[in-house]
Design a protein around this nucleic acid. Structure first.
Lengths: 337, 337
DNA sequence: TCAGGCTACGCAACCGGTTGCGTAGCGGGT
DNA sequence: ACCCGCTACGCAACCGGTTGCGTAGCCTGA
């Protein structure tokens, strides 16, 4: 490594003390104007840049925030990361990213790697597999602020940023009903995800409001794999009478389900309508995307979560047992065509 | 912040010196066995974990590698990141990720933020906009190892990991010819990307080998926006005779081009065949994906690049002006249906 | 009995920058 | 001439862990 210029070198060349250089660089009025100027001039000339490691060490801060999410390739999360990145770059934080790939073990491993590296705060969207959240509470117990976003585990008392999934489900279901659907099925996600309850509630509310019967046989849960979706959708299609619409957990589930319908010779969005969540950019390339999809504004969710985390870091207050913020970002219905 | 246990605290409680504790924790045989054991026992009990900032400071290493790429939402890059992450997690490096969004200015800003934070090395996939690469050479001049992957700028002498795009283009074109296509167009990318030259060469080679005429009117460049692709594809369709096949820069370009064909009432992959690069997972949801797509193995590219970077970091040698490695990962043709 | 060696540990500098406290030197007021 | 106060800067500790060098204390052998 080529030696980088330090404050000492500047001090030596100008025959002043290191403390003078330090203060001069920070424009401390205690140092005379001429000295300040000559120090700054030499610093610029030598391309001095402060040693971040030394600053981090002394201040006890690392300037890094950790981001843990299931899969960056999911559009929702990459958009959320964009929001996070936008804030972090502004606030001069480095973003350390890791994917849990929905594995509980990886999530634990990553959190401990992040805490060992003294990240100043963590943004977490929980793995599908995770059911116990002691590892998250452990982080908070170490006084490291955590903000949960989107996949918010129950029972962890810290700041949270979510999406108004319940209203989204309500609006989507209502829309299907307004289009004339009478037997609307729900292809919900796994019980470990809290957002599934919200979808369920919104769905039920809309059914009731439209005088549609609630039939539990029309409600299925999938584990988000294409195989399971295919299986559950086939079960729905075997019913008599068949459902005439499906509210799917997200666009991927909807697309997997649609394939089964097509395989059985049905006309998608004619014989059976689809609504879902996510509003994938890929929808624009499909000949038959879900008729409506609930846009969840992942970018804004990421931004908001990053803002809350940085505020939490800078205020030095880790949310205690009972005071924490919970922010809900509005969703809105995106109608295709 | 709750005070974290330091080596001093352990020393105080056991009435030994800090140096003894330090050596005992590292199992230095200079320290007697009983002392070592009692130190380690107390450390475990107090949940001591070394202050990473102090270690980084003293060692002059940060334990962070920076990753700069255009857009994480592009499947290719998120897969490459997966490969990088796999290696980094193993080697205990933190990954700091930033997206240039294909902007030259952002790329410069990000590189300087990363160097200011003393990352130990950088993995870079260049922005589409970038034409001068002094900012990259500056990083290398600071003795920070850089490995370029996929979007490899010309004239930067450092390690590189790319994909065998030329052969991919050759294979794809050959495949189209074997299917009976006689007028194969090329929808290539912007001239700033070196990989475009490779595509061009592979395309030409296959044409010549199959006794097909090379007609420059069939070769267009797009800037990767849907609008420009639409415009160039329309120009191709206005020709008489029309091309009967298109080799597109990547799947997105192919999909955008296909939409124009459909708008003009053509049957995609019947009236006109498509081949492209990337092999998007989304293809499986399309009714008419490109017939063949060149799989570029982004995961392996990311892995290899991360391995090279870490080797470079650990050997302490920044590639000089003339000795650097260039690794090419094989591509292979993925035929749909 | 004492030199020499070995065991087992302590002292203190060091990494780079920050900061509380101290002080030399000078000017002005009386 | 003397004291006060102000300007402009230096000294040294500090953050936490590492490491070269030093040394007390004990054992061994001649």
């Amino acid at each position: 490594m080529k030696e980088l210029v330090t404050i000492k070198e500047i001090a030596r060349q100008l025959q002043v003390s290191v403390s003078t250089v330090s203060r001069a660089l920070r424009n401390n009025p205690r140092i005379g104007l001429k000295t300040r100027e000559s120090v700054q001039a030499l610093a610029g000339q030598l391309k001095y840049s402060p040693n971040a490691a030394a600053l981090n060490f002394r201040s006890g801060k690392s300037g890094i925030i950790g981001v843990v999410l299931p899969e960056i390739r999911e559009n929702f999360f990459s958009e959320a990361l964009n929001g996070i990145e936008a804030i972090a770059l502004n606030e001069k934080y480095l973003v350390a990213l890791y994917q849990s790939r929905d594995s509980f073990e990886r999530e634990k491993q990553i959190l401990s790697a992040l805490t060992a590296n003294r990240v100043e705060g963590i943004l977490l969207s929980a793995a599908k597999e995770s059911q116990s959240f002691q590892h998250v509470r452990d982080v908070i117990a170490q006084q490291i602020p955590v903000v949960l976003f989107d996949r918010i585990p129950p029972g962890v008392k810290t700041h949270q940023v979510g999406c108004d999934v319940k209203n989204g489900a309500y609006q989507a279901t209502k829309w299907l009903a307004a289009q004339g659907s009478r037997r609307i099925a729900l292809l919900n996600g796994p019980p470990t995800l809290v957002a599934c309850d919200d979808r369920y509630e919104g769905y039920i509310t809309a059914l009731v409001e439209n005088d549609l019967p609630v039939d539990s046989i029309l409600i299925k849960r999938v584990d988000l794999t294409p195989e399971d979706t295919a299986k559950k959708m086939a079960q729905l299609l075997a019913l008599d009478p068949r459902p005439d619409a499906v509210l799917a957990f997200n666009d991927y589930v909807a697309l997997d389900a649609m394939r089964i319908c097509r395989n059985q010779g049905m006309m998608v969005n004619k014989d059976i309508s689809f609504a879902s969540f996510a509003n994938l950019p890929m929808n624009m390339y499909l000949e038959q995307p879900p008729l409506v999809s609930v846009e969840q504004h992942p970018f804004e969710i990421g931004q908001k979560a990053a803002e809350m985390l940085i505020r939490s870091i800078q205020s030095g207050t880790v949310p205690g047992s009972d005071e924490y913020e919970r922010v809900i970002i509005d969703s809105h219905l995106k109608v295709w065509q």
